[in-house]
Design a protein around this nucleic acid. Sequence first.
DNA 1: TGGTTAATTAGCTGATTGGTAAATTACGGA
DNA 2: TCCGTAATTTACCAATCAGCTAATTAACCA
Lengths: 113, 113
Amino acid sequence: MSAVATDPLSVVFAALADPTRRAILARLAEGPATVNEIAEPFEMTLPAISKHLKVLERAGLISRGRQAQWRPCTLEAEPLRAASEWMGQYRVFWEHRFDRLDAHLRTLLEPPA
Amino acid sequence: MSAVATDPLSVVFAALADPTRRAILARLAEGPATVNEIAEPFEMTLPAISKHLKVLERAGLISRGRQAQWRPCTLEAEPLRAASEWMGQYRVFWEHRFDRLDAHLRTLLEPPA
DNA sequence: TGGTTAATTAGCTGATTGGTAAATTACGGA
DNA sequence: TCCGTAATTTACCAATCAGCTAATTAACCA
């Protein structure tokens, strides 16, 4: 049947749904790095890392240059901005929690001691 | 081998990586709804929706009550707050883009006309 | 009790994922 | 030209996912 969602937001969230990939982004937040540098802290083969990088690249979360035989990866934060903007539409739901609002209203109705 | 990530952030992002599930959240932002109400706008069978709801529930994004034979679903935004907080650590990367920063610094160095 | 409605579970299929090992491409340097 | 290093590609595997149909559970009502 149908497959996996291919709209940009779904692709970005899917890319973020893996701790290894989030750790790669955290590494790249400190500056660009080559594939081997990125792979170093992980107990995982290079091809596995390569696949993760492809997922991140397709989500637009990284870009890759080419210098001799190295492919330095760079963080691209734009899709994170888009995802964050999507989440923003729910901010009101976690900022004033409604049970607390209830409590607050109840407090207002009680006459001060 | 190993499987799918089970840490809370991964589970939440995976739940968000599907347009149907995001649409369900959007519906619930207007207020609680029963499974049939939620399913109504989708061209999808009820069991499929039921599965999506289970994914959302395991991510903590919805909770379910019980009133007679209805199971009203309610939006729970806390995990969105957590995810948004995680993203916040990258805000600097999309807010002041570094090429613009360069341009800004260059502007500062130019003497005003 | 039996019927209706709400919702989930069970079982199936095909596609995708996350990992591996082995082979391949691409580049720089002696 | 040949070697070494960087990285990707190519199978391959087990597990998961998203959807379906059919069967089941749960609660209400007459």
